[in-house]
């Protein structure tokens, strides 16, 4: 087991190296002063002359060879220094610190919401496998799978956040911090979280259903039933726990994906999270912000995946033996 663990950690090193190398190589590919970008801020502007661009590149050290830049960037990054944003002239690390909690809250709430809906539905579908409720849920989940978040955002805003329809139940824009007002925070959080949850529910529901179908064939379920236990008791107390193994694993991975996957809702609902800052930074060629934010998200994702793998190994002896 320790060998497997060691191999996983060893595998991490080159992956992290490639991820950081790709992001530090970005200035070579992104053309500063590109007319199709929409630059803003004190250092970037639309009408930069080639000399301006040269000066900016020299100031940020982008004219040094890649290996020098890479060494410098990594040495700074491990001390928590991601450079200074070209658009706002403030440290990138500060902006990440400010925005990370927002995105994390959004991702966590969406995940919990998706689980809260998908678990009962998955159990129900497994209990009624092949019958009408199962078929209905199956159809519903394949329908939901075909609705991309940008469409469900628009649909939900139209239904719940536009005046005149069902009334403006939720605000359609903006973000209030939980520390300012918890109720306002929940209001601004609700629609985006529902949008993200809707995309995850079908996957969770299907996964739990199929794992549960396997569990329900076991002898101990038959024993429990023949002892006269009620169907819900057998389902939730006997069958759910052994069936939720892969669901828990996927939930861990999903959290990591959601942290990088909130771009669309943050853009549409105007939420000041990591995704919004990346879209802004990419369209304005704010290279240091793109580098810092993308690396933080990607490294977090890789680490979380490895953690999930290791946790899986610790819990399940069968994986350990492999």
């Amino acid at each position: 087991m320790w060998r497997l663990l060691g191999r996983k950690v060893l595998h991490l090193i080159p992956v992290l190296f490639l991820v950081t190398l790709a992001t530090t190589a970005m200035p070579d590919m992104l053309k500063l002063g590109d007319p199709s970008a929409t630059p803003v801020g004190p250092k970037l502007s639309a009408d930069m002359t080639p000399e301006d661009v040269k000066r900016l590149e020299a100031q940020y050290g982008y004219d040094d060879p890649l290996y020098e830049r890479y060494g410098r960037w990594v040495a700074d990054a491990v001390t928590g220094d991601f450079g200074t944003s070209m658009a706002t002239d403030t440290p990138v690390a500060d902006s990440i610190k400010e925005r990370y909690p927002v995105t994390l809250e959004l991702a966590l709430v969406s995940l919990l919401l998706a689980l809260a809906v998908a678990v009962p539905l998955g159990v129900w579908a497994a209990a009624k496998a092949g019958r009408l409720p199962d078929k209905f849920l199956g159809g519903l989940s394949s329908g939901l799978l075909a609705i991309p978040p940008f469409i469900s955002s628009i649909l939900l805003v139209y239904l719940f956040a536009a005046p005149g329809k069902l009334g403006q139940v939720f605000p359609n824009q903006g973000w209030t911090k939980a520390s300012e007002s918890l109720s306002a925070n929940i209001e601004t959080l609700m629609l985006p979280a529902i949008v993200l949850a809707l995309a995850e529910i079908p996957q969770f529901q299907r996964l739990l259903r199929s794992d549960m179908l396997g569990t329900l064939q076991e002898d101990y379920i038959l024993t429990a039933r023949s002892k006269g236990m009620s169907a819900p008791y057998v389902l939730f107390r006997h069958a759910l726990r052994p069936s939720s193994f892969s669901l828990i694993t996927i939930s861990g991975l999903t959290l990591g994906r959601l942290i990088g996957g909130t771009v669309i809702v943050e853009f549409y609902f105007g939420i000041p999270g990591l995704g919004q800052s990346i879209v802004g930074a990419i369209t304005s060629n704010d290279i240091p912000t793109v580098q810092g934010t993308v690396v933080v998200i990607a490294v977090g994702y890789v680490l979380l995946n490895t953690l999930v793998d290791v946790a899986y190994m610790l819990i399940d002896p069968r994986v350990r033996a492999r």
Binding site: P14, M26, S36, G260, G261, V279, V294, I297, A298, V302
Partner: peptide, 24 residues
């Protein structure tokens, strides 16, 4: 595997955004 994992380490939409910003 290392190259594939490195590509999969980026959230797909972010990677696509980065590629879109490079390809102009």
């Amino acid at each position: 595997d290392i190259f594939a994992d490195a590509l999969l380490a980026f959230p797909p939409l972010l990677l696509l955004l980065m590629l879109a910003s490079v390809l102009k």
